[in-house]
Nucleic acid binder design. Structure first.
Lengths: 238, 238, 238, 238
DNA sequence: TATGAATGAGTGTTCATTCAT
DNA sequence: GATGAATGAACACTCATTCAT
């Protein structure tokens, strides 16, 4: 009997938490472990321990390690999108919106470098990426940018032949390249200057020619005015 | 005796090739296997078999699987750099040079998507990347682009406040983003249009304001002059 | 389906034994394999098969092959110590105790030559031996002998300048040397005579000079005294 | 041609030394490497490099790694025996000779702990040890001690029932046990005191009973003398 | 529903020895 | 005789996943 009591005492406290809570715990633990170790090095046993469950329990909610990663990233993305949505709503003006999106993306990478890396290194190269929910979320996430570009094209602020998708690749690709060193833990980057630099380049590259060099326009307006005046005097004469 | 014969029969024909040749064989085999399977899935035994050597022989020349990958990539980069060097020499004009570099890089990815992926996915995220020879080679490889930008800044063709390194990140980042779908084997990309689009965006983003649409301004000024002259004569007449 | 059946057929019958039982099975198997093949030649796969588990299961309980060896030896030592303790309790008299310890140690080697060898050849030369649990167990195991010596010194039966630790080294070293031939499987040794020979040598080497033939001298002195008294009285009379 | 010269320059300088010199070089290198790394960890390639030869050359003179070890040890033993022979010649008196042999053996271990260990750990446990030349050399080496014991038995200094071989095992076994800690690099030992202690124990354990406790004998002689005197006086009376 | 013991496939690496040159 | 490139066998260890209890 004494032995039995001992065994019972040793037994992990079985607690029946609502599934949602369990899932949240597991995902939080998984997020932390994936961030610390990367996908390959992360151990299911580590995640289980940190979540306060046994390995088997993880498989009740997630088909496998990969799905766990995917779900963690999906959650992160979802939250990201909502947050951006809210903040973006108050932005006015193409340049401001552009700069905001770039700035926020850089900020996201700075706040969650590990998760960003997991997307870049593990998820995106995967053959099943297109077709995945993460792909779809990324679409939504980056759509804001293409929307801004498209809108500016329509108002004539941007060239009619500008390619929103190319702009998207340029912005996100540039940011990624620029932050690899940071993602490798080799030191921080200058967020504001980088955001300004990118926004500036992109804006200049897209802005309509006629709108572009305002002084030329001004001069032309002057000329037009003079002509009008001349024409006006001629009319008076005619 | 039967056993002995069997053993003897199993023995691979021993051939003593010069080390260089062996190394080349192994690297060729490794390149092929890495390209087909990716780094993780590639088996040393596969590589050995394809190279016509036993596994142990690989370790005479390469410390481990990782070094083998690195050496394969290094060789590839080296050849790339030399090839570009040659072809680039005859390019004249900033825009042409820009377009050439972009076009060639896209071509490289199309010709060697697997090796490109290995760099993006395996080598670049590695904590030891900075400090590796591949990092250095990539520096050299991308230097052509920053040189072009710097030169154009000096001649005044590009804005004085343009950032060559940002341009580099923008170009290579954009290309990478644009080609991920292709790298995932989801279909080809439009090389020429992509090259044109990127070159155009970059050029417009960098060109000096005063120089910007030089012909346009000139032509407008001419038109204005003519109009003024016309107006003037009209006035004189009036 | 046929393949699936094959796979299923291959699957070992899964049985969930209590951990203690599993550990015991594995240690028993390991003990046997180590004894048969020696440490180097022993294969984990052999041990697993003999224990009726897969290799991976061994690593649930033992960090590595070395730890498995150590644990097997520890268990053996522990049992040894307990057994000796019990049997030794009834021994009276220094010589008897000495002889008992020597005899038992020889017996242990005869019963478990393979494990003895593993200690002599694998564990004791190891840089980490001191500080290991086996070292501690060996200390306890050999302490009986030094205790006997110390006790005999205190009663004056043994010389005051005798060194218990030297006696220990002499006894165990001698036994080891004497049994190497047996440990090499070159034939048995004469247990009783060896035990007697060692006990005798050690006893003679340690016993106090004055105490040596204590009764003999005393009795002779008494006799002499009586004779002297007798002679004295005779003289007085004479 | 330039390349050929380069290759030629890289080629190891081929020198034809007399075989004896080669063998000596290899054995010296092997001794050093075995001592540093132990048998298992020692690499033939290391030995070859240190000896200034290629691996293949070692196999011209030694059948395999094991033989190389054996030959190194044999040489060492041979030199040892000769040295002892010379020094021992001048020793007079059983105790002195005993003490000398013990002292010299301790000295040998202190001077060559690594080689000593190789004998204890690698060679002696080997199934082929008996029958090996090293076994024979060890016999010769330890014969000095049994000779001394035998001689002392013959002169009556030692008990007639003393066992020379047991003494041998006791002496060498004790020394070995005593020095394991040193052999494990855990600190030095007190050579002189150890030698004295062992010699003393052994001598006392072996010396004839009649010779044994000289004071007892003396006292008995005194008693006897008194008795004789008493008897003498009685006789005078009688 | 939770547990966690058991599974078992999978592979990079070492190095003594050989032998073509 | 010397070289040293090539051989190739051999094996401990990991860990995601399953499933009996």
């Amino acid at each position: 009997m004494a032995v039995e009591q001992l065994v019972r005492a040793k037994r992990r406290k079985v607690s029946r938490l609502p599934a949602e809570r369990r899932i949240a715990d597991i995902m939080a633990a998984a997020g932390a472990v994936f961030a610390e170790k990367g996908y390959q090095e992360a151990l299911i046993s580590d995640i289980a321990e940190r979540a306060g469950v046994v390995e088997g329990s993880i498989y009740r909610f997630f088909a496998n390690k990969r799905e766990l990663l995917v779900r963690v990233v999906e959650d992160w993305y979802q939250a990201l999108i909502e947050e951006e949505e809210e903040l973006f709503a108050s932005m006015r003006g193409t340049w401001n919106q552009l700069r905001f999106i770039i700035h926020r993306h850089l900020l996201t990478i700075r706040r969650d470098p590990a998760l960003s890396r997991l997307v870049f290194q593990e998820l995106r190269p995967d053959p099943g990426y297109r077709g995945s929910q993460v792909f779809e979320l990324n679409r939504i996430y980056t759509h804001k940018l293409t929307d801004v570009v498209r809108a500016a094209i329509e108002t004539g602020e941007f060239r009619a032949d500008a390619s929103p998708s190319l702009v998207r690749d340029m912005v996100y690709g540039c940011i990624e390249h620029r932050t690899w060193s940071f993602l490798r833990n080799e030191g921080d980057f200058d967020l504001d200057n980088t955001a300004d630099g990118i926004a500036d380049m992109i804006y200049r590259g897209l802005v309509s020619d006629r709108a572009k060099p305002p002084d030329v326009v001004e001069r032309l307006e002057e000329v037009a005015a003079r002509l009008e005046r001349a024409a006006g005097s001629g009319q008076e004469n005619g």
